[in-house]
């Protein structure tokens, strides 16, 4: 876990607690890729509650579109949505090189699977990588192979593997050529805005950025055991991305592998229906509680947990079990309060 290693040096800085508290952590997240590859679309869906259809209205991004996304109270994502037209790209690589590529936490590079000129895409990608390794050698790189819905379903896996192989090959060629010594591990995802694959990729990106993750996970685990749950999912309030989850031994037999993304997708769509019904803004909080008792199969509830999170609990059937779990989750809120507050020095993440 990166956060554990990173927390060691910050312990030494505990004299500087005050400034630490005042200034929440800001992660610079670069979102890059060729023009028209779908960067702004995915950003709008994940963080601004657009539905896939609405992204058709988005125009081209001019230069860099900066947005600050508050996530879980103590994590502010500094999202740089970089317009992908070639003129801008050249600009980032020359005049703005230091400005853009220094202090980057994460680079998300988006490839359009339908692109006609793959060689050129790769060339741009390699020059971006070279700038990144120069100024932010510790940055993580996520490669999203986007618009996968355009490929016929049975060919998707093969096309994806093939494209990832090409990206990896170009990356290692660059590393050898430039004599770069650091480590560069890219994490690939196949995505599409039309299904839940987008949530999978972003949940994983967010997962790596959240501070105190191990604390959240262990606390979630003990809560799950106490209330005899099958599965617990902790969602962020606006984006409904899964921040953390816990699954019981029995729950791991669930054959639906992509259930987290699916639930994110389902709930997010439903949030939009509610916002149409109530006439409240899309980003506002839409529901406080949802419960479903499916006879003697399972029961489930999703409730507002801390200020910034929702908790979804899957339980085995049983009225008494359900009610006590609901009460216990309310009590457990106290122990999760730290999700909202600013980082405490002992647990900070850098």
């Amino acid at each position: 876990m990166t956060d554990l290693e990173a927390s060691v040096p910050s312990l030494g800085m505990s004299t500087d607690v005050r400034s630490e508290l005042k200034k929440p952590k800001k992660k610079k997240v670069l979102l890059m890729g060729k023009s028209g590859s779908g960067k702004s679309s995915m950003r709008s869906i994940i963080f601004s509650n657009y539905i896939a259809r609405d992204t058709r209205r988005l125009g081209a991004t001019i230069d860099v579109d900066l947005s600050h996304v508050k996530f879980l109270g103590n994590l502010t994502l500094n999202l740089w949505d970089c317009g992908g037209q070639e003129a801008f790209m050249e600009n980032y690589l020359s005049q703005q090189r230091v400005h853009v590529f220094s202090n980057v936490g994460v680079l998300i590079y988006v490839f359009d699977i339908e692109s006609r000129d793959v060689d050129r895409d790769m060339a741009t990608y390699v020059s971006i990588i070279s700038a990144l390794t120069q100024y932010s050698p510790t940055a993580k790189v996520y490669v999203l192979i986007h618009k996968m819905d355009l490929i016929t379903p049975h060919a998707r896996e093969a096309v994806f593997v093939d494209r990832v192989r090409l990206v990896r090959q170009k990356t290692s060629e660059f590393i050898q050529g430039a004599g770069y010594t650091g480590e560069l591990d890219l994490i690939p995802f196949a995505t599409s805005i039309w299904d839940q694959s987008l949530y999978k990729a972003w949940a994983s990106i967010i997962h790596d950025l959240v501070p105190n993750l191990s604390v959240i996970e262990s606390q979630l685990g003990s809560l799950g055991v106490l209330i005899e749950a099958e599965e617990l999912l902790l969602f962020e309030r606006t984006s409904f991305l899964v921040v953390s989850n816990w699954t019981s031994e029995e729950g791991q037999n669930n054959p639906t592998g992509d259930r987290q993304e699916r639930i994110s997708n389902i709930l997010k769509h439903f949030k939009q229906s509610i916002s149409r019904f109530t006439g409240t803004p899309r980003n506002a909080e839409q529901f406080t509680l949802m419960e479903h008792k499916a006879g003697s199969r399972f029961s489930m509830f999703a409730c507002k947990f801390t200020t910034n999170t929702y908790l979804m609990v899957i339980l085995p059937p049983g009225e008494a079990r359900f009610n006590s779990a609901k009460l216990n989750c309310q009590i457990a809120r106290e122990s999760f309060k730290f999700l909202d507050g600013p980082v405490t020095p002992g647990q900070s993440y850098n």
């Binding site: 509610i274 109530t278 839409q286 529901f287 406080t288 509680l289 949802m290 479903h292 008792k293 006879g295």
Partner: peptide, 9 residues
């Protein structure tokens, strides 16, 4: 199946 949800609004 019994289900219920509470809207914030």
């Amino acid at each position: 199946a019994e289900s219920c949800m509470v809207l914030s609004d």
